[in-house]
Structures are given as C-alpha cells and as structure tokens.
C-alpha cells in the first residue's frame, strides 16, 4: 500500500516548507495518471503538528519518524532510513522539493539504490509509466527533457513554484510510525548551531521579488529597494554586481552564480540585466525594469519598463501603493 509514489516532506525545525506542499500536488497529479497511491515521508523531532498537517493534506498514507536523532537533518541518518523504507516498500517514484537538504538526500539515496536521479524538474509528463522531466540546464539557457532509461525507481526533485500548493483539511490519512536506523553515536556529522536563519519566505519561494543592481550605487542605496520589497511583502534580491561590490550579502544574489527565482512579479531596480542575471529570473511571470537607461539589456525582456532614476521613482511608487491599500 505504500508502494506507489512517495513525497519526501522537507521542513525546517517542524515548519513545513511551501514547496513540500507543492510537491504533494505534483505527486497527486502523477498518481491519478498512473493509478498509484501517494505516501508522504516525514522525519524530524517533536513534529506531531507537522505530521497531522501532512496527514490531512492530499496524501493517502504517511510514514513518519519522530525521534531525537532526526531533530537536525543529516543525510546520513535520513538517507539510511529512506533506503531501509525503500527496501521494505519499493515505491516506484520518489519526489522531493529542490532544496539544499533534499539535494544531499537525493545524492545519498541514488548511491544506496544505484540509480540516476533527476533534479530541478519544472514540468512532469508520463509516458509508459516513465516520468519525463523537463529541467533547465546551462543555467536556464536551455531545457532538457530527461527520463530514466528503464523502470528503475525514479527519484525526482521539483523546483519551488512549479505546482500549486496542495489541498489540505481533508480526512486524516493513516500514519505509520517508524524507528530511525542509526543511533546518535553512528552519525558522524554533528550540528553545533544555526545562525541568522529565518523561515520567512525565501527568495525562491516568494511570489514577489524586488532586486537591486549596480544602479543603487552603494549599501545605503538598497534602502528604497528593501522598502519596496517590504511594502509588497516580497523578498529582496540583488545582482551579482551589487553583491560583489559588498553592498549586500550573497544570500540575496539572483542569477547564474546565485539563486534561481521564478516569481509572479520580478522588479529589477537599477539592474542592467546581463545574461548571467537573466539566467536566474527569466521565468518570472511579469518583469518590471526600473532603469535610467532605456538601452539596458533588461529593457529587452521586461514586461514593463520604467525609464527613471530609481531614487526618484521608488519612493513615489511606495507612497502610491500605501495609499491604495488604505
């Protein structure tokens, strides 16, 4: 009964990631096409609420491991448990969100199962029980259609914002509680601390991203850009030029050597739009470019262009947005 499609539920200290719910939707779509069940796998410590939340979402079964050794994600303990569960239940497909933790887990699982995994899916199709995954390659300049060449277990990760968030508040599915494989003494990696973390929407999860580039001129110049992001309840991004100049930290960087985002709305403030930056944001639904230079490359692929000094325009835009919401 647990042998159909698995969804690995990634969370941060018990807080469900939006992308995990999106992957449940993907699993349900595949399950309906292929006549399979959906089982969610959730591991952590003191996660009763999370388990309940998942059991009431659009899944058929839940396998849960709630143990002190699972409090921090470590690929060693999580990978060993998933490999053991795989051997017991033989799921056909394992889906995961494209997060850092899951990339480690996928690498571990693909070694243990001796299969090839496919990461960063942005579209899924089924042909003869094999999932065709569309994924960006060469930093999004090209798309690849990838599938396994035989009926191996198919391990696939899915980018945030590819599918809608799954339905919840359903009848509670059956939960199978399992024990971990490793004792703490068998796990080499120890987590000492977390620093500067936040579970608020990350760049890749946000439906609105406001980014600043060379045009902001300095660290203070990010102030209006940050304010606009806050006004819109969006995330703050930056171009490589701004990060390399030391105006803002690297975790805000959007582009080929930063994060890839695909929001509904991307507002580029003082960003020229080099090909490496495009690679990180080109799949955004609506792109607004605020730039003094009408010839800037970003103007070529923006939906709307505002030819203005960002320091003149953004404060007025914030004012208009605020007066609208009152």
């Amino acid at each position: 009964m647990h042998s159909g499609i698995w969804v690995y539920i990634d969370h941060f200290q018990g807080e469900l990631l939006t992308v995990s719910s999106e992957v449940v939707t993907a699993a349900r779509l595949l399950a309906d096409k292929m006549g399979l069940s959906v089982t969610a796998i959730v591991c952590g410590h003191n996660i009763d609420d999370l388990i309940d939340q998942i059991a009431r979402s659009d899944v058929d079964y839940v396998i849960a491991c709630d143990d002190i050794t699972m409090a921090d994600f470590r690929y060693e303990s999580f990978g060993a448990l998933l490999a053991k569960l795989y051997a017991e239940h033989k799921p056909k497909i394992i889906l995961m969100p494209s997060t850092h933790r899951c990339r480690d887990l996928i690498a571990t699982l693909s070694v243990k199962l001796d299969v090839s995994a496919i990461t960063d899916g942005v579209d899924l199709n089924v042909e003869n029980d094999i999932v065709q995954v569309t994924r960006p390659v060469y930093a999004g300049k090209l798309n690849a259609k990838v599938s396994v060449s035989d009926l191996f277990c198919q391990i696939i990760s899915i980018r945030p914002r590819t599918f809608a968030v799954c339905e919840s508040n359903q009848e509670r599915s059956e939960v199978l509680q399992v024990d971990p494989v490793y004792e703490e003494s068998e796990i080499v990696i120890k987590v000492v601390s977390y620093d500067n973390y936040s579970t608020k929407k990350t760049l890749s999860d946000s439906s609105i991203v406001v980014s600043g580039g060379r045009g902001v001129g300095g660290p203070e110049g990010f102030q209006p850009v940050r304010q606009l992001a806050e006004t819109l309840d969006g995330a703050l991004g930056a171009s490589r030029a701004a990060v390399d100049s030391g105006w803002i930290s690297y975790d805000h960087q959007v582009g080929q050597t930063g994060k890839t985002v695909s929001p509904d709305l991307y507002i580029a403030c003082g960003i020229s739009g080099a090909i490496q930056h495009q690679a990180g944001m080109r799949t955004s639904k609506i792109i607004v470019a605020i730039n003094k230079d009408v010839q800037a490359p970003i103007m070529k692929f923006a939906t709307y262009g505002i030819v203005a000094d960002l320091f003149d325009f953004i404060p007025v835009l914030i004012e208009e947005l605020n007066s609208r919401s009152v």
């Binding site: 997060t99 973390y197 890749s204 975790d251």
Partner: peptide, 15 residues
C-alpha cells in the same frame, strides 16, 4: 568545523 549556507540561513557543524 565548518559553516554551511542552507536555504534558511547558516548552520555550523563538525565532522
């Protein structure tokens, strides 16, 4: 001992 940059922030760990 290293610091890792994860989706939510930094994690210090030893191995």
């Amino acid at each position: 001992e290293v610091v890792r940059l994860l989706d939510e922030g930094y994690q210090e760990c030893i191995a």
